[in-house]
Amino acid sequence: MKPARFDYVRAEHLAEVHDVLAENGNDARVIAGGQTLLPMLSMRLARPKVVVDIMHLPQLQTIDADKGTIRIGAGVRQAQLLGWPLLSDRQPLLAAALPWVGHAQTRNRGTICGSLAHADPSAEIPLVLVALGGTIELSSRRGRRRIAADIFFTGMMSTARSEDELIEAAILPARPTGSGYAFQEFGRRHGDFAIAACAAVATDKGTRLAVAGVADRATMHDFAALDGSALDDALDAFAWDLDARDDLHATARYRRELVRRMGRAVIEEARRCRA
């Protein structure tokens, strides 16, 4: 269980990263924390020709918060963000979800953007980004673009990133006043891939629920101000729309049931928390 051979580039300038990606396309892999890439390399599921290390670029290491947004650079580790003193004030949903990402020992190395790049359908960070309407900032030799999280994730481990692009940052809206949040997750064990994870955001415009672990990507739905049996019906329809599948750990039917029940619980909690 050892990786196949690859070249290694420790980038000292952003342009080097762009060059490696432009020149090698899908044969290049960015390594940041490596917490997902390394097992794939060791299992030889991934066999890049070149691995480019972006963890020595100071401009990617920053968390920048202005009054409306939080911009998290590609080099920011999950533990670093979790330890950011302003986190629970600026973005409580992310603060609630981050402790569910792997374990302390993997959060110490794993990055926020690495999780987005990997696009695991049960991952918490993509879920939070989708729930909050965040954006992903991509850069390449060709320039820079931003793409909304809900269209960035295109399926199981698939994203709208082009082969030559680096995920340079994740951008989240800061918590607007008067908004409420809730997060719940259920897995077989703590730290496991979620069988279902639900994040809800309640604002004066309505309530949005995003779900991970059920569809092939984190998926959201706006529930406006629905409640009572209307909310149940809408949740039921949403649960079916996610096209859940059976797997080793849970049935599709079980996943739908978690979406209905956990979904309702987080929606109500987010609304309470707003009130």
């Binding site: 269980m1 390594i31 490596g34 917490q35 097992p39 060791s42 533990a79 020992q105 110490n108 190395r109």
Partner: peptide, 24 residues
Amino acid sequence: CEHGVCGACTIDIDGVPARACLTL
């Protein structure tokens, strides 16, 4: 395990505990 789950290889890397098997 060489895939980051068991924790046997955990060491202190730059001041924090982390998996040596998930590091080149």
